[in-house]
């Protein structure tokens, strides 16, 4: 089903629109069957069909494949939605129940057989599910990695203490050299190679040079975490172009992570699955700030601020 491409940049909206369209199609087709062709499809059958279809959609349509845990959440939500739909009115609820009641009452040979088979199979099914859940597995255990653990109140780099809540990037400055939130927006399309570029763009260029000398081997030349060494690591390095990484973080948080590296992750960051070196051992404070400046400028994200 991946033949139909997800359009880069519009994927989340596209998924919602697709789901909406499919749901309408579903409703419409049963409406047509009923009104135009006189085939009334039982609510239970409709519900089952819709549920199976939603599972297939989440399982195969979305690419890359989504983890089981999320699929489970989605399936549960779908199930709840289907229940709310079929039981919303008394008529549809009776329609939905009717085949189930028929099986339980078992007035005809067919329903008797179905009932017998399910009564015998159900204990086995429950037993099998229980066993399947409990049996030892050779898969790697699920690990909860708090990717962005709570930062310390302050961090000390090259003997200088930075209070994370108040510190700011000394190079995020407008043309007068004053700190500015808006300077990145102003120069987002600027040319860092311009001789007469404003100070901000100069710092971005310097940051870029540092990035390509140190960081891009892992974080990739498009900053998307797909550097030439990236796939030697598990998990692969952070993808800065994703809305969930640096876009979610304060600049000082990034500063703390860059300077302290994987080894400086707190207890909460268990199991510390990061091999990023503590860059304070290789870069100066200024270089770290500049490279962060570059990362934000290049990805077009803005650092998180408090209100």
């Amino acid at each position: 089903m991946t033949a139909l491409k997800l359009v880069e940049g519009y994927m989340p909206v596209q998924m919602l629109i697709e789901m909406g369209g499919l749901a309408l199609l579903f409703i419409w087709s049963f409406y047509l069957l009923d009104k135009k062709m006189g085939i009334k499809v039982n609510k239970l059958a409709q519900a089952t069909g819709l549920f199976l279809f939603s599972i297939i959609y989440f399982r195969f349509r979305i690419y890359p494949p989504i983890p089981f845990s999320v699929q489970a959440i989605y399936a549960t939500m779908t199930l709840i939605g289907i229940f709310m739909w079929v039981s919303s009115t008394e008529t549809s609820w009776q329609d939905f129940r009717q085949p189930l009641i028929a099986v339980v009452d078992a007035k005809t040979p067919t329903t008797q057989i179905i009932r017998a088979v399910s009564v015998v199979l159900l204990p086995f099914l429950v037993g099998f599910l229980g066993w399947n859940n409990m049996k030892p597995s050779i898969d790697e255990p699920i690990e909860l990695r708090t990717v962005h653990p709570a930062p310390p109140a302050s961090t000390k780099v090259h003997g200088k203490t930075f209070v994370l809540q108040t510190a700011s990037n000394p190079y995020r400055v407008d043309d007068d050299g004053k700190y500015s939130d808006m300077v990145q927006k102003k120069y987002i399309d600027g040319n860092p190679w311009d001789e007469k570029a404003p100070p901000y763009m100069q710092y971005v260029r310097e940051g870029g040079q540092i990035f390509f000398q140190n960081c891009h081997f892992c974080h990739g030349d498009n900053l998307n975490g797909r550097g030439m060494f990236a796939f030697a690591f598990n998990p692969i390095p952070a993808n800065f172009t994703d809305a969930g990484t640096i876009a979610q973080l304060q600049e000082t948080f990034v500063f703390w992570r860059v300077s302290k590296g994987g080894i400086g992750l707190p207890r909460e960051g268990f199991p510390w699955a990061s091999v990023m070196p503590p860059w304070e051992q290789h870069l100066t404070i200024d270089e770290i700030w500049k490279v962060i400046l570059f990362e934000y400028w290049h990805t077009g994200y803005y650092p998180r601020t408090w209100d």
Binding site: P64, P67, I142, E143, N234, I236, N239, D242
Partner: peptide, 14 residues
């Protein structure tokens, strides 16, 4: 929440 295998299939945390 995902297994390391799923993580690899997905190609990243996000």
């Amino acid at each position: 929440v995902m297994t390391p295998a799923e993580l690899k299939a997905m190609g990243g945390q996000q």
